[in-house]
Amino acid sequence: MSNVLTKVKLPYLLLLPGFLFLFTFFILPIVNLAQTSTQTPIAGGDTGQYEQTLQFSNYITAFTENKEQFARSFVFALCATILALAIAYPLAYAIAFKAGKLKNFLLVLVVAPFFVSFLLRTIAWKQILGEEGFVVPTLRNIGIIGQSTTLTSTSFAVVMGMTYNFLPFMTLPLYASLERIDPRTMEASGDLYANGITTFRKVTLPLSMPGVVAGTLLTFIPAAGDYVNAAILGSPNTKMIGNVIESRYFKIVDYPTAAALSFTLMAAILILVTLYIRKAGTEELV
């Protein structure tokens, strides 16, 4: 019965190296982050030296000082997610059902922009929408926007940039679940007296729910923690929590507050994600 023995052990042996790695470089850092978040600077020590004082008020300070940025992060992320869903769903639908022989090619096109560094693309947006680009002067000339209105350094630009950056993350899972739908189920719905909109609402959308859930999560999570779009396309008035954390680490060197902010952000996202998955009732993600 040596087979049985190896069968029991083998999965654990396979898991061991990877999980050891994840434990050391993912779990341990998070635990360490939690510890740092309740520390205070050592009296008379150098910058960056802290001691554990279980200062839970770090959280309260961190949160109250940055309420606005927290709120903005979640609102921006939510807007970007909804916009991305609105753009990606028809796109994925067209590729899955209307593309014919071009299907694979279009799928490649969705992923292709990835290969131009996302920073280059974001900066390209900044320049296209900036004062020296052609969009702003044109819009001003035809009077759609006022002479002093700008497109960059606005909330609009930040949300648009995030929508743009995470669009493929939304499109691919949507495509994957739409592609699995048997088009005959939609025909059957039409046969059973449902019009186009009802068919979409009662058949197509429910069947593509796993893709909607996966896509929205893959967009919302990185968007909520993002600071690059806000840094490039925004202004000091559009700072997100990511920008605050980044500057606490690199500019102010206030690790406990930065850790408290990071931990709060992670906890908030995890709670939202859990509630969302519960509500959507899908377990295909995990």
Partner: peptide, 13 residues
Amino acid sequence: ATPEIVLGASLLS
């Protein structure tokens, strides 16, 4: 499900 900034920051710590 963890934002990149948290992954990066915690590993640095």
